[in-house]
Structure formats: C-alpha cells, structure tokens
Design a protein around this nucleic acid. Structure first.
Length: 309
DNA sequence: GATGAGGAGAGCT
DNA sequence: AGCTCTCCTCATC
C-alpha cells in the first residue's frame, strides 16, 4: 500500500474514525510511547479507556494537533526516555522531522496517512474475524449488516440504529447516501456512513490485504471459543484490558473483564444473552478435551491453554 | 456476591 | 456426533 486508497483519500483526517487498535499503533502514538518511551496515558488527548469509548473526539483532536508550528511536541512531556530504549528500532518519520526541528511537510503527512490507512485495514480485518463477516460490505446479508451496525455502534458509542436498517442487505446499504443514512439514523447516521465508506474503500483498495493467516473465523467455519479467546489475546492493543497473557509461553491468560469478554463472544456468536457464567461453562467443557485447564496455582479468571503455541 | 466446578438437556450444524 | 448454550446446584473465595 503505497498511498491511501482512492476512497480513503477522500476522507479527511478529521473524519477518520478509527478503532483504538489503530490509535495505539499509529505513528504519532508510536512516537510517544515508543521512541519517547512514554505510556499512552501520559499525554493528551488521552485515548479512550476502553475500545468502545467514543473515539471520534479523540481522533479529531489527534489530527487537530497536527502542527502548523510543531507545537504539539509541547504536549509530550519532557522525556529522556529515548535513552531508556536505545534498542527501539522503530523510528517514526514524524518524530525524526520534529527532532531535526522541521515542521511537518507534505511528505511526512503522507507517511502518517499511509500508516493510518494501513492500520485501518488491520482494524477492519480484526472486525471481520470477530464478526465473521466479509470485508466487502457489498456481500453482506441483512444479518451481517446488523452485526456490523451493532459492532460499530458499540465501538463508537452510537445510539442503536439497527432497526432503522432492518432487512437491508449490504448492497442496499452501500447504495445509500450519507443523507439517507441521516434520515434513517438522525443520531450517528453520518458516522455510520463514514465508517461504511472506509469499509467499502478498504475492500476495494487492495487485494489480499489481510495478513494471510486464514483462520476458521475467516473461512466461514464456526469459530470455537478457544480460538476466539486466542484471537483476543493476539490483539492486546484492542483487548488487553479485557483479556491478557500472564505467561504466554505457558499459555496462561487472565480474563480481566469477564463481562466484556462475554459480551464480545456474544456479539461474535450472535448470542445477546451471553454472559460470563455461560462462557465459563463453555471454557470448562475444554477441561475434559484437554484444550484449556486451570493453571497449577488456580486463580480466579485465570486459565491455561494446554497446548500453547 | 462473584466465581468455579460440573450435571443435564436442548439446539444447531 | 460434536460443540455450544442454557439452566441448575453446590462449593469456594
């Protein structure tokens, strides 16, 4: 992906609505948390506390920080942390230009946009896996549309709009204008339309944009709970607040937010009534099968994959 | 009260 | 048949 896809390039930076996964891995943040050795919470504007929290404001401010005068650097606390991470190989071009005292030029902006687009694609890929839908909205069934709506509403704290789009397939949805979105969903319709635009662009921008690791969730086969849990564990930027490795080598993980993990599983399986009680019962079924077990030192909400990768 | 363990039945593919 | 969901009881933290 050399440059932004045609569709994406039409989306002004301030309108880009990205997931936290994207947020946490974009160049500016890398600059802050990587090269500068800072925790993401330490500079403003702060990303939302959970992936679901409203991100548009964050991203608006993120892009609005873009310096006419390089002043955003002042938002980053003084840090000598670069010395603390001499091994850090990643160097953000934006930071380099900052470091040399230059303001952002078009080239830097292009690089950032390019990175952002790349992260958007990764983010969409994640959503595809979790929702078990294709990346191309044109292929969506009405059920897929509802899943996507539910997901997007949840991710960005939009008011429920599923009913307004009931019975609509992906093709019909894609044919709708922003104005039509607004008519059906006065609150958030424009945001939904913007998101759909990004999905449409992403699905046509590049062939084989996925990482190539075809798992069961992308091949149309029903995903197993243990696979789903591993998927969440593989995305610590997005889901680390909900579930994380305690010892990846041993396959030991902890469910930090049981309700959220259960909810995500419910979304994934189209089971709105899913809760941790039921999810944990399913996990316990894995004991007999030798897929998951409790660690030797049993702790609440801590489980262990019997065969860690 | 939340979580853990496990039995049992039902539904889905 | 295999997997998961759902509901349940009882135990433990």
């Amino acid at each position: 992906m050399g440059s932004a896809s045609p569709g994406l390039s039409n989306v002004s930076p301030g309108c880009l609505l990205l997931s936290p996964d994207v947020a946490l891995r974009t160049g500016v943040e890398k600059a802050a948390s990587g090269a500068m050795g800072l925790e993401k919470q330490e500079w403003s504007p702060s990303p939302p506390a959970t992936p679901e929290q409203g991100l548009s404001a964050f991203y608006l401010s993120y892009f609005n920080m873009y310096p006419e005068d390089g002043s955003w650097v002042a938002k980053v606390p003084e840090a000598s942390a670069r010395e603390d991470h001499p091994e850090e190989p990643e160097q953000c071009p934006v930071i380099d230009s900052q470091a040399s005292g230059n303001t952002l030029d078009e080239h830097s902006l292009e690089q950032v946009q390019s990175m952002v687009v790349g992260e958007v694609l990764k983010d969409i890929e994640t959503a595809c896996k979790l929702l078990n839908i294709t990346a191309d909205p044109g292929d969506w069934s009405p059920g897929n549309v509802q899943k996507w709506l539910l997901w997007t509403e949840h991710q960005y704290r939009l008011p429920p709009a599923g009913k307004a789009f009931q019975e609509l397939g992906g093709k019909e949805l894609c044919a709708m204008s922003e104005e039509q979105f607004r008519q059906r969903a006065p609150l958030g319709g424009d945001v939904l339309h913007a998101h759909l635009d990004i999905w449409k662009s992403a699905s046509t921008s590049e062939e084989g944009w996925t990482d190539g690791e075809v798992d069961s969730s992308c091949s149309g086969q029903p995903i197993h709970l243990w696979q789903f849990l591993k998927e969440l564990l593989l995305k610590p930027h997005s889901y680390g607040r909900f579930i994380r490795w305690l010892n990846k080598e041993k396959g030991i993980f902890k469910i930090e937010d049981s309700a959220q993990v259960a909810r995500l599983w419910g979304v994934r399986k189209n089971r709105p009534a899913m809760n941790y009680d039921k999810l944990s019962r399913s996990i316990r079924q894995y004991y007999k099968k030798g897929i998951i077990r409790k660690p030797d030192i049993s702790q609440r909400l801590v489980y262990q994959f019997v065969h860690p990768v």
